[in-house]
Each structure stands twice: as structure tokens, then as C-alpha cells.
Design a protein around this nucleic acid. Structure first.
Lengths: 249, 249
DNA sequence: CACAAGGAGGCACAAAAATGCAAAAGAGAA
DNA sequence: TTCTCTTTTGCATTTTTGTGCCTCCTTGTG
């Protein structure tokens, strides 16, 4: 990767995310932290970014619009995403559905990743634009605008012919006894299918979703291979003792 | 190989790939790296490319990827879109593919429109988020990142079972004698299918695309029901006399 | 105030660029 | 053709650039 190209990407990321941690950049761009630091130093000298301890901020109007709000509460999600990264290897076939946590995860994927990513979420597909070595397969269907994923019979049918190594499930509600559930039945059907066509299933769950339930049950929590969450005490941990839990703080 | 010929090729490659590594260029053109370096130096001096360590970047917008392009909302495209609006009625089934002109069009659609919109473009699907009475159907397939549409056998097969009242085609190249063409064969196949499953076809074309041709022909211009364009004189108008032309200024 | 994390500066290595030079390839004229 | 002259290309050597690693210093935080 060219130096100029990398710096260009840094500026673009900063346009979108308003702040960036040097360590994260190093992972996402697959270069050493020293190189990132040198890049940040140069970009700062050019006035394109504002460098701070640990990372950099974008210059210009600190607007607080919708996109900003989306990023404010995302620190936790970034941390979850980083943990999930440990389970991603090159050459994997990854199935991933919608949700802001999943979108955050995709944005953190290193640009050098070589993989096939199957998704029913247009925003996820678009977020992979710059990942040259990732083949993106979109699953068609009727768009469910609330969560920006395709659903319905077409979606389920298209999944019939697919197999994935890992399914990264966006979770709305999870309860150790009742299982994983969602408010809409079509979403439940699609997610259940996705579990079935994948060798392993991973879920990133923020603590506000733990111990919540809604109408349509997808599967018991025992179907999860990995559960990545935050701030759980030992009591909760025991309830999920049949799967590998990664807890982040 | 002549020097000028080679340099011409370098500029063309750069137009498409927006960056190039000197070593790769040396292999692709079968000359030594020294020669490439001399070429790059000359082209840089002429201002045709921007030379950097390891290779070169194209001048102008350093990276004009899709997300960047979509923010450049051209006035012309807005005007074309407004004209096209005359052909949209409630309860229609509209098939629409990718391209910035089409995206612009979708953004202009009234929020009260009641319709079914079928698309293979994730950005188009996302643009319809706020249109409560529009049912969006996404067609799956392999994502072609350059134009952000799904393509391939899955896409064509999914189209088999669909019928639309109107297809709004994104056009790259159009010529009155040769027809409508695109640079990529998979895109041609999908667009051809889309023409076939639709009762009528509409295209919004900016004048820079008139009388241009590329490798893969989709169909003759006579297949177009409506052609919406700008600034054409009578001579050009005659060439398209078998379809309804709307000219905007 | 202590401790961890980040940053600065130096060093080393590899890759790329500049430079000088000679061979090769054309172009034009006898 | 053959010869000369010029342009272009390739090779060898030196210099520069980019990157990672290491050590030491600075900053932030409890």
C-alpha cells in the first residue's frame, strides 16, 4: 500500500468517525503503529487532521448531526468488535446480518483481509467497498427498513444454497433460559436459517440487551459458539456456561 | 513498443485504477523498472499523473470512489430526475439499477409515493429508507464494488421471476447506431435481462455520454421507451426518432 | 507518585529512485 | 543496404525513502 493512499484513507475515516485511535488504525490498515504515528504527524502538519494523544481528531466544524450521534455511544461497540476480530481468519466465508454493532465490526475489519462475506444488509455491503480482497455476496429479498436487511421467502431460499464458516449475528434480545429472540417473525426465520447454514455462530451483545426477551425466538443460547459481551458478573457468566464467552470491559 | 504508446497506456490504466505500483507496471508492460520510472517522471512533469514513491496516483480527485461520487450532486442530474418524475405513477412496479444519476433520481422521489421498487443497488435501496409506502425488493448477487450493484448468475436468475412496469436504466454509453453499451460483460447481461422483464424502459443520460461506446452492447436504442437528456440539437434528435425523447435545458 | 500507554529519536534493512554509462534501436542520408 | 547520429532502453552503483524495531522519554490517569 502506498503511503499517500494510506494517508488518504486515514483522512476519509476521520471524516466519518470524527476521532480515531492510532492502535486501531494500525490494525485496520495493517501497518505498524510507528508508521501510523508518522502518517498522523505529517497529516497534522498539513492541517488535514488534528493530532492528539492516542490518535487524532478531524478538523473543521464539530457538527453534532445524526451521524455523529451514531458514533458517540459506539466506544463499547468498537471494543466488542476488536475482540471479535480474534475469530476472523483469512479465507473464511463469513455470514453477517444487520445491526449497528455489526456495522461497526465491519468498519474495523483490516483492509487486507481476504475473505468472502455474505450479507443481507445493504449498509454492511457498502461498508466493504474499500476491502479489495473481500468478495461480497448480497442476499436478495424484501427490504425491512427498520433494520435495513432483506427478509422474506426469497432471502431464506437464497440461504438454502449457501454455507458459511462463521455467522456473525446481530442480536436484539438474549436471555439465558429463553434464548435469542427478535420482535419480527420474518427476521426470526431468516436468522434461524443463517444459524443453520453456518458452522459457527458469533454474537456481539452490549449489556443492555442481556436478559431481555421479545416475541419470536430464534434459537437457544446454546447454539451460539461465541458470545462477546461486556460487564457481566459471575452469576450471569454461569448462565451461559455452555458457550465460549468473551467478556470485555 | 513506442514510448508514447506506453505512456498513453499508463495514463489510461491510471484513469481506471486510480493508483499504480511501478513494479507492477514494469511487469505488465514488459519493460524495465527504469523505463517506467522515466515515463512516470515525464508524465508527472506534464501534470498528467501525480508521482509518489513506489508508483503514481491519478491527478484530480485522488480517490473518486462511489461514496465520494454520490455526494457530488450535479444540477443537471437533478433536472433530468425531475423530468423523469413525470413518468412515475402510484402503484407502479419500478425496476431501477445503479449509477449516480439513478441515485439522484431516487432521492428526488416524493415521500408519499406508493410503489414497489426493485433494485440491485444497495445505495438505491438505502436511499428509500424514509419512503414508507414504497416496498423495496433487493436483488441478490455478487457485489460489483465499482458501481455498487449486484451482478452475476444469481442476479439474472432472480430477475427471471420478476416483472416490472418500468425499468430505469443507468447508462454508461449510448450511440444511436450501435446502441447502449457498458464496459463490463456481467453488467451487460444483467441490464439486458432487466430490459426483457420490463414493459417500458427509461434512461436518463447526461450529454457527455451521448455518442460514446464501450465493449459490451446491451440493446439497440430502439428498446428504450423514454430517453431523457439535455442539450441535444435537431440532428441528434433525429437519430433517436423512434423513441420519445425529453430534452431538458 | 507510580505505572501503563503513547510518543520521539536513532538505527537498520529493504525497496525504490537517481545517476552515469553503454548497448540497442530507429531514422535519415549517401 | 550501410553508416552515422540521436533517442531510447537496460544495467550497475550510489542515494534516498519508507518502514519496523528498539530504547528512552513524556503524558495521562488513578
Amino acid at each position: 500500500m502506498l503511503k499517500e493512499e494510506r494517508q488518504q484513507i486515514i483522512v476519509e475515516i476521520l471524516e466519518e468517525e470524527h476521532k480515531i485511535i492510532a492502535t486501531d488504525l494500525s490494525r485496520r490498515l495493517s501497518v505498524s503503529e510507528d508508521t501510523i504515528r508518522r502518517d498522523l504527524k505529517e497529516l497534522d502538519k498539513q492541517g488535514l487532521i488534528k493530532r492528539v494523544h492516542s490518535g487524532a481528531l478531524r478538523v473543521g466544524p464539530p457538527v453534532v448531526d445524526f451521524t455523529t450521534r451514531q458514533h458517540i455511544s459506539s466506544d463499547i461497540k468498537t471494543i466488542l468488535a476488536k475482540k471479535a476480530m480474534d475469530f476472523i481468519k483469512d479465507e473464511m466465508v463469513i455470514l453477517i446480518d444487520g445491526g449497528t454493532t455489526n456495522l461497526q465490526f465491519v468498519n474495523q475489519l483490516p483492509l487486507t483481509l481476504k475473505a468472502t462475506i455474505i450479507t443481507n444488509s445493504p449498509p454492511i455491503a457498502m461498508a466493504l467497498e474499500d476491502h479489495q480482497d473481500v468478495e461480497v455476496i448480497m442476499i436478495g429479498g424484501t427490504l425491512f427498513k427498520q433494520s435495513m436487511v432483506t427478509l422474506g421467502i426469497d432471502t431464506v431460499e437464497a440461504l438454502e444454497t449457501m454455507r458459511a464458516d462463521l455467522y456473525i449475528m446481530g442480536v436484539y434480545n438474549i436471555d439465558p433460559h429463553i434464548g435469542i429472540s427478535v420482535p419480527s417473525i420474518s427476521e426470526a426465520l431468516v436468522k434461524r436459517k443463517m444459524v443453520n447454514v453456518s458452522a459457527k455462530t458469533l454474537a456481539m451483545v452490549t449489556s443492555d440487551k442481556l436478559d431481555t426477551v421479545s416475541n419470536h425466538i430464534i434459537c437457544p443460547t446454546s447454539q451460539l459458539t461465541y458470545l462477546i459481551t461486556e460487564n457481566v458478573n459471575d452469576r450471569v457468566k454461569k448462565l451461559y456456561d455452555n458457550q465460549e464467552i468473551v467478556v470485555v470491559s
